[in-house]
Design a protein around this nucleic acid. Structure first.
Lengths: 340, 340
DNA sequence: TCGTACCAATGAAACGATTCAAAGGAATCG
DNA sequence: CGATTCCTTTGAATCGTTTCATTGGTACGA
């Protein structure tokens, strides 16, 4: 019984032609004040809601943008998502969000789904090996921007954050506060982000002839993994301890902090300075507020939308790779020993 | 130049009628092996992707479900979202996710958007006062399930978790491990969840004649707020200290823990037992692993989808309110004093 | 008064899929 | 051989918009 009202019903009810109703919706100033009122009242009376499928079928494209992230639970991505949503809303588009959960099959599902929906374009933080699936998108002419990973610039636009620069920033900060025996705590260097951050740190350490950098492997990127590393350090004893520790992410850093502060043998930052990466919420509210490297996630999301718009507007396939530099956030965990 | 291929193009290229192509896509066993092959090859050759707008226009409804949450950054919701996505995928639907960010305007935007998309139904964790906007949905006949909030059962189906039971569970556990001077730390009781958890705790305490419950107000639901409460407790000194603390969420509990363990005057759980709520990831990896109340988020998401399906299938407006009972997770922070 | 502009409103055509009654063809049976 | 059944394929009609050439009406200027 309750079929939703169509534009034709509205037209009948208002005593006008369908084209007029459409004009009220899309070009309000083409229609006279009097009929506009009548139509609007009819819309209200019937509870009419525009059927977007029909609209889309006619005009050929949707007003939505597909966004596929690796993990919605990751604060990095949720922040990017929110920024992208806001930027898209400003230009009248909505974001369809897909969570691939690092699973190539789920990613493929979402790509297909979004193509069937004829999204204007796709923002994607791809799972593992990019090429194959993305090439297909390129062939099909779906404008695509790769997020958080550099893409072959001849094929795609991309936005990413410079992890090497972030690593440099962190290590340089430790050196600047007088630390010389540095340690890098990181998960497997097979993860590109980890490798790049380490490389940046190395670059900074090379600038100081008397500085050293030791690499401590962690089994994963978790608080627990960090605690194991911390426990091992505590075992070593005072003499052999580094005086500045740079962890590849905040979770590791918090784990190391737990371990060092629990034993009460070492003080942060008096004996050891500690800096993490990502600046998650917990960094600021740790027992000793944790210095960290903040990634410009809002900027990332906003820029991704902008690049996509560029792709959509201009037909010619020129792509841009935008790389942002992260930012140092200084807190108590790296205060200078004198001041600490 | 590159208009995407339509079903008609495929039909021509394969030398069959459009209806046949449609059958290959929707009822593969209605068509002979030979023509099926031909059609599939044509689809492949042309890179055909079904235009979902056209499909939807014809069949009258989409294969998507709208889900509006208060905050995608909140682990509680991300877990619900993921479960809902999985459950929806099983029945061949996809979830469109919207993040209202506790903002009624954004919520309204998403409701409109999803209606234009003719979603099969809506799962919503509503902002503030539910009634007005949801009533509209009901009038329009959009099947809706309210998540994480009880709704008037004559109007909507809903899924929620019993916070009173959770509060009871937490307090009862403290009592069971021999604690008698309990404290409840919670944000403003204007938040329904907080009020219910407190009420449940009161119920448990009443069961033990010699037990007392004191309520400590926190300014918000954050680690920092918890730390303030903890600092205040430390000031009090040993004699006046509760021996069991129940915090309305894990962030508060972690703050209290920081405060108590930093001073080294009180030991957890020897002097004070501590339990939180939500069982966030950080609970398990705290300095002293934190006992907590876990909400069955996966179940919540899955059930929400199921209830929605019920609504969609059956025309008659019978609604159900499903309430789940949370689960106690025991860790070191509430070990019995003897054992601790 | 007529011609010209201009503005509002009209309504048929088109978008690309699905549906379904009908037709065509092969096989089976009496 | 004709009738019946079964299976495959056909193609026109349909969904609800937007678009745009066309029409009707009013105002203005000559």
């Amino acid at each position: 019984m309750n079929r939703t009202a169509s534009i034709k019903d509205v037209a009948t009810h208002a005593g006008v032609a369908v084209g007029t109703v459409s004009n009220v919706l899309n070009y309000p100033d083409r229609v006279s004040e009097r009929t506009k009122e009548r139509v609007l009242r009819a819309i209200d009376d019937l509870g009419f809601v525009r059927n977007d499928a029909a609209r889309q079928l006619r005009v050929g494209h949707s007003r939505t943008i597909g966004l596929i992230v690796l993990d919605v639970g990751n604060p990095f991505f949720t922040s990017v998502v929110r920024a992208a949503e806001d930027a898209a809303a400003l230009q009248g588009s909505a974001v369809l969000l897909g969570d691939s959960g690092h699973d190539a099959a789920r990613e493929a599902n979402y790509i297909d789904l979004f193509q069937e929906q004829r999204v204007q374009g796709l923002l994607i933080s791809p799972v593992g090996d990019v090429t194959a699936r993305l090439d297909l998108l390129r062939e099909r002419g779906v404008p695509t921007v790769v997020v958080d990973r550099l893409a072959d610039e001849s094929k795609f636009s991309s936005v990413a954050v410079d992890d090497d620069a972030g690593g440099y920033l962190a290590a340089r900060h430790l050196l600047d506060t007088g630390r010389r025996r540095l340690a890098f705590v990181g998960g497997p260097t097979s993860i590109r982000q980890v490798a790049d951050r380490l490389q940046g740190a190395r670059r900074a350490v090379k600038e100081e002839p008397d500085a050293t950098l030791e690499v401590l492997d962690a089994e994963g990127q978790t608080v627990l993994a960090g605690r194991s590393v911390g426990d091992a350090l505590v075992q070593r004893g005072r003499a052999d301890l580094p005086d500045g520790i740079f962890c590849a992410n905040d979770l590791l850093a918090l784990g190391v902090m737990q371990s060092l502060t629990m034993t009460h043998t070492f003080r942060i930052p008096a004996d050891v300075a500690l800096i993490g990466y990502d600046d998650i919420d917990f960094a600021a509210s740790a027992v000793v507020p944790l210095s960290s490297i903040r990634q410009p996630t809002e900027l990332l999301g906003r820029t991704a939308i902008e690049l996509l718009s560029e792709e959509v507007e201009s037909q010619s396939p020129v792509h841009r790779a935008v790389v942002f530099t992260p930012e140092l956030v200084v807190r108590q965990s790296t205060a200078t020993p004198a001041a600490g």
